[in-house]
Structures are given as C-alpha cells and as structure tokens.
Amino acid sequence: MGGAHHRPDVAVSASGDATIVWESGDDIGLTRLAKVSGAVLLTPRLANVTTAGQQRRPAIAANFNGDLVVAWESSGVWARSFTTTATGRHAEVQVSTTTGAAAPTVGLDDQAYAVVGWTVSGVDGWLRGLNPDGTFTGRLGAQTLTNTTTGRQDQFAVAVSPWGEVPVAYTDDNDGNLFDQILLGLGATNSA
C-alpha cells in the first residue's frame, strides 16, 4: 500500500492473532498478523469505503470471537464494523453529531455491539453506541460522558467489557489551572 504510514492501533481476539489499523496515506489500512510468526493472515486492505478526503487517526477493538470495529477521523468521527474475517458489515457511518469531533477511541462487547468515544474541540468527551449493522437503535445515544463539561476534558478513552459495560477515562482540567487530572468513569452500559 502506498503513501506514508503512521499511527497504528492494534487489537487481539482469543485466537491471539493481531489485527492492526494505521494511517495509510489518506486512508485507513487494515491487516492481521499471526501471533507466533507474524505471517500475514489478511492481506492489507482499506478499512474505509469512502476514500475522498482524508481519513486519520484510526482506533480498533476486537472481542473474544474476533469481531472488529474501527473508527477514524474524517471531518467528524466515523466507524465501521467487520466480521472476524474483516469483511465489512456496513459502510462507515458518521458517529459524531457535532463539529470538532476528533481522536476516536473504540470498544466492542461479545455481542459485537460497539462504543465509539471522541473528543470535541479538545474540551469535551463524547461517546455513542452502535449495533453491528451500523445502526444506533437500542444503544447508548450520543452524549458527553464526563463528570462535568465545565472547562477542558480531553484525551477521552473508552473500553467495553464482554457484557457491554463501558468505562471511560479522560484528562480533566475543569478549573483551568493547568494541573490536569485523569478521571475514570464506571457504571455505564451500552443500552439505551
């Protein structure tokens, strides 16, 4: 694959094989390497369907079975779910609902329901749940999920347990004194 390659992210399923995404030129590359030998199990391909514009900053998550979700920036935050063989279950869908959405982060439960998180304009942490088919019905709606939205909350990160529990962590400086704290949020589940 041509172009400069940057910013990898990696996920692993119970098989132990590693699925990797990265910035490949203006697109998102995806491949899988075997756990012992590093042999290429999935030839490098694009995770994104739409190649217009720039796709940046990919994040990937896998569950026990090897189902995948990949999110990236492209004038907002987009996501696409894949089967264990990296066949797209749907074309990418825009997950973010406001301008300024960047820095995606993803998690995936054992039923292949995903949660995508992102940071808006470097001051607010957001997340949204989605179904394996790229729809949103029944999953966590798009919202900020930080203790306060006053001041700056950024570097928002999500993970998802096998059962859809959604912890979040982020950097907080809500009083603007430049002494950042890391906050951890627990108790959310990916159900509407």
Partner: peptide, 17 residues
C-alpha cells in the same frame, strides 16, 4: 436518546504520584 444519569457515574481521580 437515553442520557446516562450522573449518579451511576463513579469517578476516581488518579493523583499525580
């Protein structure tokens, strides 16, 4: 959309040390 209630949101701060 269902907003997560703040009361279920358990927060832990990580000190600088």
């Amino acid at each position: 959309m269902t907003a997560i209630k703040r009361r279920v949101f358990v927060l832990g701060g990580l000190a600088t040390a």
